[in-house]
Design a protein around this nucleic acid. Structure first.
Lengths: 192, 192
DNA sequence: CATGATAGATAACGTGCGTTAGGTATCGTA
DNA sequence: TACGATACCTAACGCACGTTATCTATCATG
């Protein structure tokens, strides 16, 4: 019946993803995607009602990629895995990291939700045994803030030039431990 | 000779600044600025050769505003002043903060330069007496990272809803002290 | 082999952009 | 009062965008 499909949905999303990887979401336009695929805009409108629908599919594609980066971290410490995945995201996909983490949008869950999701993980961490729930949550917030700042500097190339990937990860881990140690030593755990 | 000027350079820059404050630099277009002023695009091209020149003037205006925010912090501790000024920037001008601090551009000086500028300040800080220069620089880097992350969360409204301005400033100060305390207690000061 | 469903191409629409050419109106001076 | 410098307006150019109407070409089925 119909001619064989040359540009299916996934192919289109992939082309748009590559454009966004290089120039952010604003680099996605019907004509730019078509040009990258070597076709006209017709296949795009056959698969997506509007360019916003295509953008939504690309965002979904980015989320999947982000999840893969996290899954690629197979160390024993979940916090370390999350931190390293964030740094990898910022390093390998700086434009996308900015779009997803440094712009106001609905892609980032509210901190409370993330915190609630991490609460049981922290409760099972032997390094945090004896900490109050409030203190654990406050530590998590601090580490998330530091991780975001470090990832932002990575994504924007604002870190000292001598810091390579390994040095950045070390800085993240080292500071995390120091914050925890600092919270322990200043003993404000319970009076928040 | 000529008719009296109704839209001078500063007026135009101010209008463009307000647009950028609300919608980022991309909200600055000749027609949008003209509409805000209630005039045509002619006065803009009388004062600026291109819209990029206007943008450069707006960036200068933003830098001045940022400097005023810093000058408004009159506490004794320069690091605390810088941190609070950064938070005020992110809170009061989130779109501009993103443009200036969370995008790759030439507006942010390389970290090494900032570090060199702060080195003498840190050297005179009694709280850091006995610290090696390398350790002081590393502490400064960590605090800058944390400050950036916290400011980014403020600018994007990603902080827990219960955190008001005061709570955010306390988090910044508290964590700064904890990092310093953690670095002290883990005693790695000298072997970087 | 003819048909019909449909993948894809083409070209046009309206909008907003930067920029510019040409016209109008003001206002101190001669 | 007439002049000239110039602040400002209007309208247009070319370009890129999202979107759509129309056309062409394919290809399994009858």
């Amino acid at each position: 019946m119909p001619p064989t499909t040359r540009y299916d949905r996934d192919t289109i999303v992939e082309a748009a993803f590559e454009l966004a990887k290089e120039g952010g979401f604003s680099a996605i336009s019907t004509r730019a995607v078509a040009k990258r695929l070597g076709c006209s805009v017709a296949p795009i409108y056959q698969n997506f009602a509007t360019v916003d629908d295509l953008l939504a599919a690309v965002v979904e594609r980015v989320r999947a990629m982000s999840g893969e980066l996290l899954a690629a971290q197979t160390g024993p410490d979940p916090f370390e895995n999350m931190g390293k995945a964030s740094l990898a995201f910022a390093r390998d996909y700086p434009a996308l990291f900015r779009e997803m983490a440094l712009e106001p949008n609905d892609y980032v869950a509210p901190h409370e939700l993330i915190e609630d999701a991490m609460a049981p993980v922290m409760a099972g961490d032997p390094a945090l045994a004896g900490w109050s729930d409030a203190a654990r949550r406050r530590l998590f917030l601090k580490m998330r803030v530091f991780q975001l700042g470090l990832s932002a500097m990575v994504a924007n190339g604002h870190l000292p030039s001598w810091m390579d990937e390994k040095a950045v990860e070390e800085l993240l881990m080292e500071t995390g431990e120091e914050i925890a140690a600092g919270m322990m030593s200043t003993r404000k755990d319970e009076q928040e």
